[in-house]
């Protein structure tokens, strides 16, 4: 296992961010779903070694991040894109990624510059590498942040909401990038976009209130909604969730309304059924 959590807990004052979380992450792409405040970012920060767990056991790439030497060894094989990465706005895209590359111990200038150009090309920013970050759009900045995480093809890639702020085309490009990149890599990403999870992830973990509510494949999460998604001519009072679709039907999740026909469930349906009202905000 690349990432292994056993009974990991994390508190911030009176707030329990993670409560005895246990799951394993294997090579491939693993998606982390959950409503706001579920503990996704805290979990990713633990995996990115920027935060130490209060209790429980966390092993990353077979090492213990509590040990200083092992933590450094983990970081050498880690790529991390924080939710809000922050930028030195006076830097160019190239300078910023180059700076992070130095922090990742790319000390040979020539090799480093080749690598920086490579990752910028991979995220489609080769043409704007010399442009100041302050002159880039929000989506481009997200891609700069992604580029630095891709440096050196890290064994463990931790991405916190990588598709937030990207337009549909950029999201598709991101999916393409990640799917070609994955291979032996372990990618752990958090997102609110269930389509991204359905399209990319071999595994999905749903967090809620600091606890794991589901861990399995997207198909298994989707299967939770099997036989509980309906298309009706009018909104059902008994449905847990219902919305009017573009073709005038009402998609109802829950008990079968009158005169309804069974619909094929999606991963989103499974997620909504799993979290119920808590997922409403996300679904909206």
């Amino acid at each position: 296992m690349t990432v292994s959590l056993h009974e990991v807990s994390q508190r911030f004052g009176q707030t329990t961010a993670l409560n005895r979380v246990s799951f394993d992450v294997k090579p491939g792409v693993t998606g982390l779903l959950g409503p706001n405040g579920a503990g996704k970012t805290t979990l990713l920060r633990l995996v990115a070694t920027v935060l130490g767990a209060d209790s429980g056991e966390l092993r990353l790439l077979g090492r213990d991040p509590r040990d200083g030497v092992e933590r450094t060894a983990i970081r050498r094989r880690l790529g991390y894109m924080p939710q809000e990465p922050g930028f030195h706005r006076g830097f160019t895209a190239f300078e910023f990624v180059d700076y992070v590359a130095i922090l990742k111990e790319w000390t040979d200038r020539r090799a480093r510059h080749v690598e920086v150009r490579r990752v910028l090309e991979r995220v489609g920013l080769g043409d704007v590498a010399s442009r100041k970050i302050k002159a880039l759009s929000g989506g481009m900045r997200r891609r700069v942040a992604l580029a630095q995480a891709l440096l050196g093809d890290a064994e463990l890639l931790v991405l916190d909401e990588p598709t937030a702020g990207l337009d549909p085309e950029q999201r598709l490009r991101f999916r393409e990038l990640l799917s070609t990149n994955a291979g032996d890599q372990t990618v752990l990403l958090s997102t609110h976009q269930t389509e991204d999870v359905a399209a990319l992830c071999g595994h999905v973990v749903v967090l809620d209130a600091g606890a794991v509510r589901f861990a399995g494949t997207p198909a298994e999460l989707t299967a939770l909604a099997a036989g509980r998604v309906w298309l009706a001519t009018e909104r059902s009072a008994g449905a847990r969730l219902a919305w009017r679709t573009g073709d005038g039907h009402h998609r109802c999740i829950g008990d079968a309304p009158p005169n309804a026909e069974l619909a094929t469930p999606t991963l989103e349906d499974g997620y909504l059924l799993l979290l119920g009202d808590k997922a409403l905000a996300v679904a909206a």
Binding site: R45, A48, T49, V50, T72, R75, R76, L78, Y80, M81, P82, E84, P85, G86, F87, H88, R89, V100, I102, L103, K104, E105, A145, Q148, V158
Partner: peptide, 22 residues
């Protein structure tokens, strides 16, 4: 203080270079 000012501290912490090195 650049990293603190621009919010890159978390990203930098995740790298192999230690704060002392910086």
């Amino acid at each position: 203080l650049r990293s603190r000012r621009h919010g890159t501290e978390e990203l930098y912490t995740s790298t192999a270079v230690t704060p002392t090195t910086r």
